[in-house]
Every structure is written in C-alpha cells, then in structure tokens.
C-alpha cells in the first residue's frame, strides 16, 4: 500500500479530493468487474456479500443491474 505521506497533502484539498474521487471510481469499476466474474464463476450472492462485507440484499441491489439476468436468477437463491 502506498505510503500515506506520498499521497496528495490534505492541505491541497483540490488535488487530494480529485484523487479521492478517482480512487473511488477505480474501486467501483474493480468491484463491478470482480462481482460479475464471481457470479459467472458460480458464487452465490451471499458469498459475494460476505466477501464485500455488505448484506446480500445490498450486494444484489448494487450489482444485479450489471449482470446478465440468467446469471442473477441462477445464483440468486444460493
């Protein structure tokens, strides 16, 4: 993990907050791609939720729209 001292200084909020937003977008993209792969590989929504540290309902609500319907239904009740 990057040394906190090498990150943009909070004293320069414009640059620091831009970095926060970009990291958040990158994390969201990684999350979407990883959840999609997990469901394709047969993970249940409970397993996805456990790995993400959220409830099954939250994981499903957040990601079901990005995943082909057949995969959602197939893994939905596991």
């Amino acid at each position: 993990m990057a040394d906190i001292n090498s990150l943009p200084s909070p004293n320069e909020p414009e640059e620091a907050l831009a970095a926060v937003v970009a990291l958040r977008v990158m994390a969201e993209r990684l999350e979407k791609k990883a959840v999609k792969k997990a469901i394709e590989q047969g993970w249940s929504w409970s397993q996805v939720a456990e790995a993400l540290g959220v409830t099954k309902q939250a994981a499903h609500k957040r990601h079901a729209a990005s995943i082909p319907k057949k995969e959602v239904t197939k893994n939905g009740d596991r």
Binding site: A2, S6, L7, P8, E15, A18, A19, V21, A22, L23, V25, M26, R29, L30, K32, K33, K36, S66
Partner: peptide, 21 residues
C-alpha cells in the same frame, strides 16, 4: 482528469484497464 488524479497517488497504469463495465 481521472488519470492525472491517479498519477498523483502513484497509480500510473490503471490496473483494472481503463474501459469501464
């Protein structure tokens, strides 16, 4: 602007590919 911001935290190459899902 996303890439510039990521560069500022030492991420020079988007590890999950630039293409969004």
């Amino acid at each position: 602007q996303y890439n510039d911001a990521l560069n500022s935290v030492g991420i020079n190459d988007d590890p999950i590919k630039a293409d969004p899902e």
